[in-house]
Design a protein around this nucleic acid. Structure first.
Lengths: 242, 242
DNA sequence: CGTTCACTTGAAAGTGTTCAATTACTGTGG
DNA sequence: CCACAGTAATTGAACACTTTCAAGTGAACG
């Protein structure tokens, strides 16, 4: 595997990026495929500044992307202009899959900070799949993961109180950031309270109030956008109870 | 196409079932595939009575299913036992796709009334895909549709008031039931008020109250589980405003 | 013909939102 | 390096929406 990484000029095959979805894609595909074909997969890198769009809703599908550093938020627009944030994405997350079939992006993706992106051109997705049968299988897996993630969010939005949602959200961010075994963890939020509220289906003020309450109860320590989870066990029980 | 339908003993290639996902699957696949291979696709029919399970969460993946008549509700269980209904499904809907990758079903599916099901064994999904390359492509399409549907539901749960949600839900059911061009439509609910509330993230009583309010405003007429939409235009504007 | 279950309705209690005002921080230009 | 402007975050108070608990109605079914 490491020898393969050396041979390939593909950004996301480096060990550093082992968590990256594109890496996984390349790796899955790489088994019995010749390298020149693989080269057609990952082509460019991109750097986005805070607020810049990776893609917009309705634009024609040209590529899928993976986050290398930084973070991206995706959102969809309702008919009336309201905007629902559908996720915050960092290291390794693959974006743009929802466009594979419809041919246009169905949500928009914005950088929340300076962000490095791995681009995989897919203008010829159909042909690529013929050349690389494993590719479709991998796409299937990634999409099904997406479905499962979305389901969790639906459960969150539909059945949980604001407090439960926020606790779950904090735990989630800690997990994707550091994967601590227990006790304590530090989270650096790249999104505003407003974004969190939007994502979790509550008002910005409610986010603030509940964070403050958590802090008063000793569960967390707030330092602007850096939040320390002091008692993960307790947070977990908050996120589940009703 | 119709000649093909005659030759094939597959339930879902009949014209009656043209809206059926499995039919679409067979059709997409059928182009340049020999019929004996197709025969391996759709095998059995099943009849479920109200309350019977099509599959349960955690059970090993063995088949995908399509609804021919009747209706199915799918739901997922939270850690604490709470249960979120993720959808109501009738004619043509394909179920069980979320299990393709994980190998076990990730939600449970129950018949809401006597329901006829088309079963497509997929114990050998990987091999099937090798034989029929178009199959994976089609699966990809179906899954991406699922993702888009779920997103709509997320928007519903996260951003809309109870009134908006219920209006949207009624319109949705009318659409899948009859696709009327305008004005008036009749919907036969196969699910209880309780189920609707669960699905839309509100209490059963709230569903009742809002339905009553809609009726008082002349938007709908309630006759037990048969609901007539008297003014679809108005309902649409209710479902969007804030 | 009575029991059961789904549905409906009322009143009280929460929960979360909105509006408004204040405070804290970031970045910019002098 | 500091003052200023602008944005983000916080807090308070009133209000609105939804839930919960409780009770009653009605249709279906044995």
């Amino acid at each position: 595997m490491s020898s393969k990484a050396v041979k390939l000029p593909l950004v996301c095959t480096s060990a550093v990026c082992a968590k990256c979805g594109i890496y996984q894609l390349c790796y899955a595909v790489g088994g019995d495929t010749d390298l020149s074909t693989l080269d057609t997969l990952v082509k460019k890198r991109k750097i986005l500044k805070r607020g810049e769009f990776l893609f917009r809703e309705g634009k024609p599908f040209q590529a899928i992307y993976a986050v290398r550093t930084g973070s991206i938020k995706t959102s969809m627009l309702a008919d009336d202009g309201r905007n629902q944030i559908t996720g915050f994405h960092d290291l390794g997350k693959v974006l743009g899959l929802d466009a594979v079939v419809t041919g246009t992006y169905n949500c928009e993706a914005v950088a929340m900070e300076t962000t490095a992106i791995c681009e995989v051109p897919f203008t010829n997705f159909g042909e690529l799949c013929k050349k690389i049968p494993e590719l479709q299988r991998k796409m299937l897996e990634i999409m099904s993961l997406e479905i499962l993630d979305n389901r969790d969010l639906m459960l969150l939005l539909g059945k949980m109180t604001a407090e439960e949602r926020l606790a779950a959200c904090l735990l989630n961010m800690a997990k994707s950031a550091e994967t601590p075994p227990s006790s304590t963890s530090r989270v650096n939020l790249s999104m505003s309270r407003n974004d969190i509220g939007n994502y979790l289906g509550m008002a910005e003020e409610t986010v603030c109030r509940i964070l403050t309450r958590f802090q008063e109860e000793g569960l967390i320590t707030i330092q602007r956008r850096q939040i320390t989870l002091n008692d993960i066990g307790q947070l977990k029980s908050v996120s589940r109870r009703k």
